[in-house]
Design a protein around this nucleic acid. Structure first.
Lengths: 202, 202
DNA sequence: CTTAAAAACTGATAATTATCATATTTTAAA
DNA sequence: TTTAAAATATGATAATTATCAGTTTTTAAG
């Protein structure tokens, strides 16, 4: 199994502030997992015993609404870490993560990484910064959901996908989402999303 | 000016994990401010140089949407702290806080409290926990905004106000919000909120 | 290659919500 | 107390979005 010390995606997240010694320890206890497209990384209500660091692939992170519809809250890819909240809270996860493409993820047990959170202030500050940034982002999503039309949200989401995942020479997005997933990101019915998408094509 | 050590609202927030010595220092550098109903605590785009601890009164925390409408993200009261994100980020505030009733707030300068954040792991962990809880809450708000009707959101908000602020003997809420504020919380037009409210009264 | 299932699409209709115009009531200032 | 301004309320209409009932296309299994 490859070592965290040499892992490139680590440079993209909070783990970059770990010391060499800490990294070696984390490297020794992590497990690498392959998750096929459509499979679940973790589910709502599940007790997370650590964090997941994404090596490759894309995952949607969602939550069921009380009316039975799935709401996708964000998308994650290479270098992103999920499950960080399990480090500071003993509650079960309120979110579900599902692979949108085949994925490679590293699982780091809570007991191991929580030591670093308590002893390495740089690392803690980095996690704090990430949470603060997530909160700021959540503010923006709430404002958009509350105040913008479905059409505006769809347009902005397509731009966001392009920024985050890029596109190829023929301007086709590097991420493939089903119409249902698109609808579940912007919070609308699948048919409405399809209707507006075909409108955009013109 | 009263002392933080004896302040009751401190028991309600992260400051409770400060040591006696830390508290005495904070107490010496804090300033107490009175803010009248309708006045601004801080504005979007402003550089926050510290955090605000609410002694009394209620404030709405909002953000302008690009279409010029105000979206209220949450309400805060006695014991709540705002501006925590300024401690971990040098960006200007993305939010605005406005007094909904007359308020007493204590301002604690960033330089002073950031020391504690770096040196007192208990305090840091508490701030982390609060942010994790805020994120979880934001998830729920996003799902509600995306998937529920205005009527459902209004009903849930009224229940939330009752839970958070309570009501008197005649079941009148302890918090008074204008129709416009109500509309700006649930993300709808003022007229729609009024329409549904009168519908609920029956 | 054939076939069944899933996904994408279309159009009609109904429900929800926004906008606008205006009236009434409440609040606060002079 | 009077008066102007602000907040609340009402109703008509338009726009947006959801739901339903299908058809076509794509995908994947046998």
């Amino acid at each position: 199994m490859s070592k965290c010390e040499q892992c490139i995606v680590r440079q993209l997240n909070s783990l970059k502030s770990l010391t060499k010694k800490e990294l070696t320890r984390i490297s020794g206890c992590k497990t690498s997992v392959t998750i096929k497209k459509g499979e679940t990384v973790f589910d709502e209500g599940e007790h997370l015993n650590g964090v997941y660091c994404i090596s490759s692939g894309i995952s949607k992170v969602s939550k069921m609404s009380s009316n039975g519809r799935e709401q996708i809250l964000f998308l994650i890819q290479k270098g992103d870490i999920i499950g960080e909240r399990s480090l500071v809270s003993d509650e079960v996860s309120n979110l579900k993560a599902t692979a949108i493409s085949d994925m490679e993820v590293c699982f780091i047990p809570k007991e191991e990484i929580i030591t670093d959170l308590q002893e390495n202030p740089d690392f803690t500050m980095n996690v704090l910064k990430k949470m603060a940034a997530s909160l700021k982002n959540a503010d923006n999503v709430i404002v958009d959901m509350a105040q913008k039309t479905v059409k505006q949200r769809l347009a902005e989401m397509l731009l966001y996908l392009d920024t985050k995942f890029g596109h190829d020479a023929e301007t086709v997005l590097n991420i493939h989402l089903s119409r249902e997933d698109i609808a579940n990101i912007i919070g609308t019915a699948t048919e409405s999303a399809i209707l507006l998408l075909s409108e955009f094509k013109k």
